[in-house]
């Protein structure tokens, strides 16, 4: 091919771009080791004077990282489990069961993907504030703070995902009807057919959708920030770290913030590196993020 004539140009360009992509991550790691007065001072130095772990200890203490981690893990796990379950149930009904209104429901699921998340920010918050019989509210959602003062508030608006249903449904359509019919003739109910035959066959889509959902939920910031203003005890990692960065003298705390960030991005980076084929397939299926 003609373009082989310039391999050095291609290599140079790709490597330069990759370096530009990675350098901010390296700067984050390097800064997390810098001592007091070493970060943000002139002249800029990339490497720390010593690889001191004290910022990590400070991050764990000052940020209450164990609590933030626990909240993030609980919320992310709940969202992922719920999205996988509801997507599988609804996907099965839409792909393999015949019932009046199926086209309408499928179109409804598709249409949910057209609404940008910011549209729901205000109404979702208000719905949670006025959630009946929660957080001191009466039956009509009056009197208290509703669900906003519980950790459930972080997960609830993300428990069902239109794209997840669509993805699962598309995958299930290709399962041959004969297999399901045979099981039904053997006396299996629809629930048994779904659990014993369909669910085991949808492992690839479970891994892909689970990974996409997990990463999105772990990284979610705006909603979690909103809920944390109602109840500071239900902060997740991104929110907790951002609050430290906002409220304390940035020059002194920058290395501590960076240490917290390193610890908070590590789980998803590792997960991504281990399962990147599945993740990338998911991104390709969902279009650009």
């Amino acid at each position: 091919m003609t373009r082989r004539r310039f391999p050095w140009f291609s290599s140079l360009l790709v490597v330069t771009g990759a370096v530009l992509t990675v350098v901010p991550f390296l700067d984050m790691v390097m800064t997390s080791f810098k001592g007091p007065g070493e970060a943000g001072t002139l002249p800029y130095r990339f490497l720390p004077k010593a690889f001191d772990l004290s910022n990590y200890r400070a991050a764990i203490d000052q940020l209450d990282l164990p609590l933030l981690f626990r909240n993030s893990v609980v919320v992310t796990t709940a969202i992922t489990a719920s999205v996988l379950l509801t997507s599988s149930l609804a996907g099965y009904a839409l792909a393999k069961l015949r019932f009046p209104g199926r086209d309408f429901v499928f179109r409804l699921v598709l249409s949910t993907m057209m609404f940008p998340p910011f549209v729901f920010l205000i109404p979702h918050f208000m719905i949670l504030v006025h959630w009946p019989l929660a957080g001191g509210n009466d039956l009509f959602g009056r009197g208290g703070a509703g669900l906003t003062v519980s950790i459930a508030a972080l997960a609830v608006p993300f428990l069902v995902n239109g794209f997840g249903i669509f993805l699962t449904r598309q995958f299930m359509v290709s399962i041959p009807d004969e297999v399901l019919e045979a099981a039904r003739i053997d006396g299996a109910g629809e629930f048994a057919v779904w659990w014993r035959i369909v669910v085991p066959q949808t492992r690839p889509v479970v891994v892909t959708l689970g990974l996409l959902t997990f990463v999105d939920a772990w990284n979610e910031y705006i909603w979690a920030l909103l809920v944390s203003t109602a109840d500071p005890d239900v902060m997740t990692l991104p929110v907790g770290i951002q609050l430290l960065q906002d409220h304390v003298d940035p020059a002194r705390t920058m290395p501590i913030v960076m240490a917290g960030l390193v610890l908070s991005v590590l789980p998803v980076l590792i997960l991504f590196l281990l399962l990147q084929k599945h993740y990338i397939r998911g991104v390709m299926l969902s279009g650009l993020k």
């Binding site: 771009g17 901010p24 700067d27 960076m258 990147q276």
Partner: peptide, 27 residues
Amino acid sequence: TLYFLPIVTTVVAVGNVWKYMYEPGGL
């Protein structure tokens, strides 16, 4: 893989690292 790393990174990390990099004493 390298080009993809920012996509799986939380916006709080991306924003703060770049904010710091743009500082007078930053990268």
